[in-house]
Design a binder for these strands. Structure first.
Length: 1205
RNA sequence: GCCGGGGUGGCGGAAUGGUAUACGCGCGCGACUCAAAAUCGCGUCUCGCAAGGGAUGAGGGUUCGAGUCCCUCCCCCGGCACCA
């Protein structure tokens, strides 16, 4: 075989043969035979491409090659493999392409698909084309529509006209996921908010499950993290703050005790409200003539009259609320209405009269009429809109219309029935009546307005010193009448809404905002009145659109507070205590005493210190650990510690120095020293200013050292009250426990006594044993958590506990919010699946009956978007006009279409059963193939995957699929950049066409090159010059195939390499480490070229290993070896673990950590033999004689290591 | 800012805590050739004549032994980003 490898001819030959023989057709090996011979299955899937007009560049096939290799590998391992391909052909890009090139999108898509398929064909993929699908095929989108209908039936698809993102360039609404920040991801146009009727899918219902199930998926961490980010779950609490509406309130009753009681109750809720009674104001009746002219009155400008009680209802300055459900309506006196007898008139007629009366007053008195006059009325504002009167006390009236009283006058009794819990009725017996809690008074709608906030830190509630509302918060217009600086506020709001979020961010996060003057909120925890602001750093779309601001414990709030000079109140003490038992580290042993002398600089070395101590011992007894030692005993002790204590000694010095270093890094940490104070190390550290203890804990069994401790405290600057004795007297234990009950305490000790003591009073996890623990606990802990201070009865609690307790205390509830928003599912474009809904004037939105699916996308001549927010389909009257499935009456079709992501959210299911007419996937087939075992792709990490997971979980819930997750394993594909390191694009002219590469270098070479470029998930620049390497590799294989095979027994070495290769290639393919698999095959080839001879079995094994990577050349060589077609159906080579090593092992020999030589070890060598060989090894012996050998280490198969001194 | 992943020759990159730089590209030298291409062989981190020494972003720690584990800092890539 001396001819050159003719890749063109050979590739063509086998590509044809594969197609004809259909060997890659996926076959369900259904366990129908039940003989138990069911093959394992593997479903390998690429993210199906959108067939763009640009065609494929070399980056696209990278993933396809990987799945192709994987699929071929699995097939050779005896799996039944599904490896399909299809087209994601709906969507904006296809439509925009069509508009630009003046081709119908359907035509363009067909053309592009043909082009793609042609390009793919040259690379030699094993796709099962019999299962090809495309999302634009009615037989496919019938089921996309079907899924939509199921969602609709379960209430998960609903209509909404909330403002959505509108791209003025693409002329369609977009989902949040379709944006980059605030610009359309397709055209970089800044999106606008537009109110359009939209279909929305309730993806948020699945947020928790999608989050939770991520943990079980074999996906790259960064993709899981992106999903978690996007779902953005945060746990916290919803808490209501109330904003009082009035400074003064008028009670309907003139009962003085009631008045005092009301005032007291308001006060208890933090409301500073003056309560009046008609009597206290000296008001009796309204005085106005029929023209609306009010009589002069120093305080009241009018009075009114009601069926039961005469009372004034016109405000003096600040407005009033009226209590009492028996109060109908504040009415003018009969003479003010022209002396009519109301009873002779109908209610409407009375209304007419009163309307005129009110209008008269409004006209005469500057048009200002205060609320209670008009609680029963609605206001027509200058712009024509109607507003509820009760919210508009200072609105200028141009007109007043009569309204339904009950609807507009929400009076609540301050008394409720004990049994029903409802406001009392007149006939309710006294003993049945229960007064509402103070808070309920305060929360009465007449008295206050609530603002709900979401916070993750309810534990900081006592530190909330102001509130901030998002500019779009509805509270602001609702309270317009009470806002003193309305002009300023409305100016800020309109400015903020004109700014895009990008602008907001660009402005360097400089905080802006405006106070809502005239309003105060009540902090529910401490009843303090706090100001309200509107500021754009609070987002309308997240949480409740309002926050409580805790500047002391939130960065953003802090920045804002600083700018607006707002109080910062610290309520979390982040100080942590570290209890440290120094005596435990440097205990009272001889060794430590000696070391202390050295460290203190009194002695040169240990020996020196000992001599000094010995001199001392000869004069006076030496005390060590409460023992008195004679000089002889001292000598004994010294010898003993010299022998056994060296290691310990070294360690202790390290420990102590290390500890001091670490502890000095700690901030917000108070250090309690456990010490009798005699320890020289501690003293030296304190004296050198390295350590500043704040507390001293004395673990002594009596107070005998009290005096000494106090002296030391003085030296150290520790207050005596911060000394705690730990003795067995109850009082002391109590005191210590008191100190230790602060949960920010950690103990650290290496001494037996100290450690035991600490463990007896601290939870085990708070007793630390080494520096890294200390560091972890003190630096990496959430710095925001801590112990509560200045928080009333909650002082001393830790953040975690306080969260629940404070939330409960203020009547809030624990809540969870998500960043994920419901999926805006309508597109005002032509090229998408029609939404199968019919709008009937009588029955509203009606689902198209399932037997009428698919709703075909009509043929049109003009498919350009209208730009008005109407779909182009709206103009096709013959399509739009239909009949209602419910009543048969005339109705209109929904004209919006689905987004591009619809089809791709379930297509992987269709591949399992692509031609099924009765179901989107047959149950048996689904059970056989699901889930996708390996899913390969890049990009789309968030959107496509989140949408598909959502739909899949829904399909699971309605019993269509049997797995909770669609993609068991995901492999992320790194992109290929152009040779210039930039993204490949037609515009930059740096696109490399795979068809050309294949033509020049061959498909197998191309495939191997793409796999060999680097780790699969890496983004690497294309380098045409480097393909030469893989081309050479293929050609060398070809050439070696021309050599005669050997009849000789295989050499151990070559056999070993082959088994290693079989092992590594298989493992690497499984792990998607194709680059190292290729490297191993190259190594193997190098070895085979150098070998004396290759046996037939070895060569055949190699060809099979190569087959998934280079299917054409492998197939050709396989045939030439006389083996039956096809190599891709041959069995994957097994390896023999015992043959992986070649009998002798080369082992390195280290001396003091440096490699000095290496030896050959035979399989059966014992440790002794190995060490003996190593000692005699060239280059090693010389290093061993130079020093005293103290340690010899043998790690079998790895290394021999000597330590010498 | 937060989260995730990284930082190793001229380049892409290899390395269960065990001889760093496998494999490939590029480059240099040589063989074959009239010559070129192709192919084959040898060499290719760095300082040093050598013995040896030094290098995996910087610094420190643990270990007989660290690219790999721990800590601090710097830089790059990706995601999120005023998310309460």
């Amino acid at each position: 075989m001396s001819e050159r490898y003719d890749h063109k001819a050979i590739e063509k030959k086998w590509q044809q043969r594969w197609q004809e023989s259909q060997i890659f057709r996926a076959q369900e090996d259904l366990p129908a035979g039940k003989a138990g011979a069911s093959k394992p299955k593997t479903y390998v899937l690429d993210m199906f491409p959108y067939p763009s007009g640009e065609g494929l560049h070399v980056g696209h096939p990278k993933g396809y090659i990987a799945t192709d290799i994987y699929a071929r590998f699995k097939r050779m391992q005896g799996h039944s493999v599904l490896h399909p391909m299809g087209w994601d052909a709906f969507g904006l890009p296809a439509e925009n392409y069509a508009i630009k090139n003046k081709i119908h999108p359907a035509v363009a898509v067909e053309k592009n698909i043909a082009n793609f398929k042609d390009q793919l064909a040259h690379i030699g993929f094993d796709y099962d084309w019999s299962r090809e699908i495309k999302t634009t095929d009615p037989a496919f989108y019938k089921w996309t529509q079907w899924i939509f209908l199921q969602l609709y039936k379960k209430g998960l698809a609903f209509q909404s006209d909330e403002p959505i993102n509108w791209c003025p360039s693409c002329k369609t609404g977009l989902a949040n996921e379709d944006l980059n920040g605030n610009v359309c991801e397709r055209c970089d146009t800044v999106v606008e908010k537009k109110r359009l009727p939209q279909w929305v899918l309730k993806i948020t219902d699945y947020a928790d499950r999608m989050l939770h199930d991520l943990d079980h998926l074999q996906w790259p961490e960064h993709i899981k993290e992106a999903q978690r980010n996007w779902i953005g779950r945060s746990e916290g609490a919803e808490i209501e703050f109330i904003v009082p509406r009035f400074k003064e309130i008028l009670l309907a009753s003139s009962n003085e005790s009631k008045r005092a009681r009301a005032e007291k109750l308001f006060k208890a809720s933090g409301l500073d409200i003056k309560v009046h009674t008609p009597k206290s104001l000296g008001l009796t009746e309204i005085e106005a003539d029929e023209n609306g002219t009010l009589a002069e009155n120093a305080e009241a400008k009018a009075r009114a009259y009601s069926g039961k009680t005469s009372l004034p209802v016109l405000a003096i300055d600040t407005g009033f609320a009226i209590e009492g459900e028996d109060l109908d309506l504040a009415r003018p006196k009969r003479n003010a209405l022209g002396g009519i007898d109301e009873n002779s008139l109908s209610q409407d007629e009375v209304g007419e009269k009163m309307l005129k009366f009110y209008q008269g007053i409004a006209k005469k008195h500057g048009g200002r009429v205060l609320a209670h006059w008009i609680d029963a009325l609605a206001l027509v504002l200058p712009d024509g809109s109607v507003e509820r009167a009760e919210d508009s006390r200072e609105v200028i009236l141009t007109d007043i219309v009569h309204g339904e009283f009950d609807k507009f006058f929400p009076v609540r009794s301050l008394y409720i029935s004990k049994t029903t819990g409802k406001p009392v009725k007149e006939e309710t017996p006294e003993e049945e009546i229960k007064e509402l809690e103070p808070m309920a008074w305060a929360q009465n709608e007449l008295v206050s307005r609530p603002i709900k906030v979401f916070t993750t830190r309810p534990d900081t509630l006592f530190g909330a010193s102001y509130m901030v509302l998002a500019p779009e918060h509805p509270f602001i217009p609702a309270m317009k009448a009470s806002i003193e600086n309305w002009d300023e506020v409305i100016a800020y709001i309109s400015e903020a809404s004109a700014k895009t979020e990008i602008d907001r961010t660009k402005e360097g996060k400089e905080k802006t905002g405006v106070e809502l003057r005239g309003l105060k909120a009540i902090n529910p925890a401490n009843k303090e009145q706090i100001p309200l602001y509107v500021a754009d750093y609070v987002l309308g779309g997240y949480g409740t659109g309002a926050i409580m601001a805790v500047p002391a414990h939130d960065e953003r709030d802090f920045a804002f507070a600083k700018k607006f000079n707002l109080p910062v109140k610290k309520v979390i003490d982040q100080t942590k205590y570290l209890i440290f038992d120094f005596d435990g580290v440097i205990g009272d042993t001889l060794e430590n005493a000696l070391l202390a002398k050295v460290r203190m600089g009194f002695c040169r070395d240990r020996e020196d210190a000992y001599q000094e101590m010995l001199t001392y011992a000869n004069k006076k007894p030496v005390h060590i650990r409460n023992h008195t030692l004679s000089p002889e005993e001292l000598q004994k002790e010294y010898d003993w510690t010299s022998r056994f204590g060296e290691e310990m000694r070294k360690q202790k010095i390290k420990l102590f120095d290390g500890f001091i270093t670490e502890i000095r890094k700690l901030r917000n940490t108070k250090i309690a020293v456990v010490s009798s104070g005699s320890n020289l190390y501690v003293r030296s550290a304190v004296e050198q200013g390295k350590l500043s203890p704040t507390h001293v804990l004395c673990f002594e069994d009596n107070h005998s050292k009290e005096e000494k401790i106090e002296r030391i405290c003085k030296d150290w600057g520790v207050s005596v009250k911060d000394v705690y004795y730990f003795t067995d007297t109850k009082a002391d234990v109590f005191e210590l426990e008191n100190f230790l009950s602060k949960e920010r305490i950690f103990g650290c000790s290496w001494g037996f006594l100290g450690k035991e003591a600490l463990e007896s009073v601290l939870p085990k996890e708070q007793v630390l044993e080494n520096f890294s623990d200390i560091h972890r606990v003190f630096e990496n802990l959430h710095t925001d958590a801590g112990m509560l201070v200045e928080s009333g009865s909650f002082d001393g609690l830790n953040s975690e506990d306080a969260k629940k307790k404070i939330t409960e205390f203020v009547g809030g509830k624990m809540a969870t919010t998500y960043k994920l928003k419901d999926w805006v599912f309508s597109r005002q474009r032509y090229w998408g699946e029609p939404i199968p809904i019919i709008h009937c004037p009588a029955h509203g939105a009606v689902a198209v009956p399932e037997d009428q699916l698919p709703v075909l996308l009509p043929e049109v001549e003009f498919y350009e978007p209208s730009g008005t927010g109407e779909s182009p389909l709206a103009n096709i009257t013959e399509w739009v006009n239909t009949t209602c499935p419910t009543c048969g009456g005339p109705a209109k079709r929904e004209t919006n279409t689905m987004p591009q992501w619809a089809g791709s959210s379930w297509y992987y299911l269709r591949f399992m059963d692509p031609r099924n007419d009765a179901a989107l996937v047959g149950k048996d087939k689904e059970k056989y193939w699901a889930p996708v075992d390996v899913y390969v792709g890049g990009d789309h990490a968030v959107r496509h995957l989140i949408y598909a997971r959502f739909w899949h979980k829904f399909l699971y819930d309605i019993g269509v699929v049997s797995t909770v997750e669609p993609f068991a394993r995901l492999e992320f594909l790194g992109f290929i950049l152009a040779e210039d390191g930039k993204k490949m694009s037609k515009r930059l002219g740096n696109v490399i066409n795979p068809t050309e590469v294949v033509a020049n270098y061959g498909a197998d070479s191309f495939r191997i090159y793409e796999m060999f470029m680097g780790p699969f998930e890496n983004t690497v620049a294309w380098n045409t010059a480097s393909i030469a390497g893989t081309t050479r590799f293929i050609e060398r294989v070809w050439r070696l195939a021309g050599e005669p095979l050997s009849e000789q027994p295989a050499t151990v070495e070559l056999e070993a390499i082959l088994h290693q290769t079989a092992k590594k290639v298989g493992e690497d393919i499984e792990a998607f480490k194709f680059n190292t698999a290729v490297a191993q095959m190259m190594t193997c080839l190098n070895a085979m070229e150098k070998a004396e001879g290759i046996r037939a079995g070895q060569w055949k094994a190699f060809i099979r290993l190569l087959a998934p990577f280079a299917p054409h050349v492998a197939e050709e060589l396989w045939e030439r070896l006389g083996e039956p077609y096809s190599v891709h159906q041959a069995a994957w080579p097994q390896f023999d673990e015992s043959k992986i090593s070649s009998g002798t092992i080369k082992v390195a020999v280290q001396v003091n950590g440096k490699v000095r030589g290496s030896i050959e070890l035979a399989q059966g060598d014992t440790e002794g033999e190995a060490l003996a060989k190593a000692r005699g090894a060239p280059g090693v012996a010389k290093w061993l004689v130079e020093g005293r050998e103290v340690k010899a280490l043998y790690v079998p198969g790895k290394i021999i290591s000597f330590v010498v001194q």
